[in-house]
């Protein structure tokens, strides 16, 4: 065990010496990893925030059944009671014409719009919430077909189409992120591989001497793998810091646009698990690049 620790210390020192001796090329590889992960991370931030909003949409999904004009106000409670028995319905709230008018007035500019009108043009409605298990297309279909058969219901409104469109946009952004991430990762792997390969060539005398004195293949290769992993981890850390800085600077500047995309949802940065994945991604890129550099190389 002690011998393993000694060898690991020797290999670690060798890796650091390698980084020092090729500091410029190592810095370029590290910066490349940082840029690649920054771009992938930026896409990731957009996706996690859009997905957060999608989750909230799902939780807040509400169906509104507007009632025919002149529907008997006394029959409203009875209708609400029947709707409440439909499969998947969690709650039903009755909004009579007066309540609808009050709500509209309370909305920004609502009072001005109603200024020129006589009477109350707004219909009474039932606001229906589904339970968790039925917040699906199937649950929505069960409810709408049940409502279709009930008297007095004029129109059913829900945000499902909009939500589906938003979900498609999130999926598109996510797929674009994956595609970009794949292309950038491959490019980064090649750059890291070339950097490490240059390091191998620049140290070929040392490697030859190591072979002469009986260094094993693992002993010769491990410092290069450590170098690549360190470059990747540092690149990942730089990307994280850049993302954090950009997030803190850009979010207040883009408040209006973000409100359009995210509504009242507060934009969020990566959580601990996502940060760890980003850093591991960087280290993995570095390790993969150095492993690729050593393919086919004989000491």
């Amino acid at each position: 065990m002690k011998r393993v620790a000694v060898i690991l210390a020797i290999l670690g020192r060798s890796a650091l010496r390698g980084l020092q001796s090729a500091a410029v090329t190592a810095a370029i590889a590290t910066a490349t990893i940082a840029i690649a992960l920054f771009l992938v991370g930026a896409f990731g931030l957009v996706v996690v925030n859009m997905e957060g909003l999608l989750d909230r949409f799902g939780r807040d999904l509400q169906i509104t059944a507007y009632l025919e004009e002149g529907y008997d106000a006394n029959a409203l409670r009875g209708l609400a009671g029947r709707v409440a028995t439909v499969e998947g319905v969690y709650s039903v709230e009755v909004i009579d014409k007066d309540a609808a008018l009050e709500r509209f007035r309370a909305m920004s500019g609502g009072a001005a719009l109603l200024g020129g009108l006589d009477g109350n043009p707004l219909p009474a409605s039932l606001e229906i919430t589904l339970d968790d298990a039925h917040r699906t297309n199937e649950g929505l279909e069960i409810l709408t077909s049940a409502l279709d058969g009930l008297p007095g219901i004029d129109e059913i409104a829900h945000g499902q189409d909009w939500i589906e469109g938003y979900a498609r946009a999130v999926a598109l952004v996510r797929v674009s992120g994956y595609a970009l991430g794949t292309v950038l990762s491959l490019a980064t792997l090649l750059i890291v591989a070339n950097t490490i390969r240059l390091g191998v060539y620049s140290r070929k005398d040392e490697l030859g001497i190591l072979a002469l004195v009986g260094a094993s293949r693992t002993f010769v290769r491990t410092p290069f793998l450590i170098e690549g992993t360190l470059q990747g981890a540092i690149g990942g850390l730089l990307a994280l810091l850049l993302l954090l800085g950009a997030f803190q600077v850009a979010v207040p500047q883009l408040q209006y646009g973000l409100t359009f995309f995210l509504g009242s949802t507060e934009p969020r940065f990566f959580e601990a698990g996502e940060i760890v994945r980003l850093l591991l991604g960087g280290a993995g890129l570095g390790l993969g690049g150095s492993a690729a550099a050593l393919i086919g190389w004989r000491s």
Partner: peptide
Amino acid sequence: KLLQGRSVEENVRITLDVVGT
């Protein structure tokens, strides 16, 4: 076949490094 960027001691020690001394 000595490593010019290393000291005399480091050049000799390389033999012992590979066996984890």
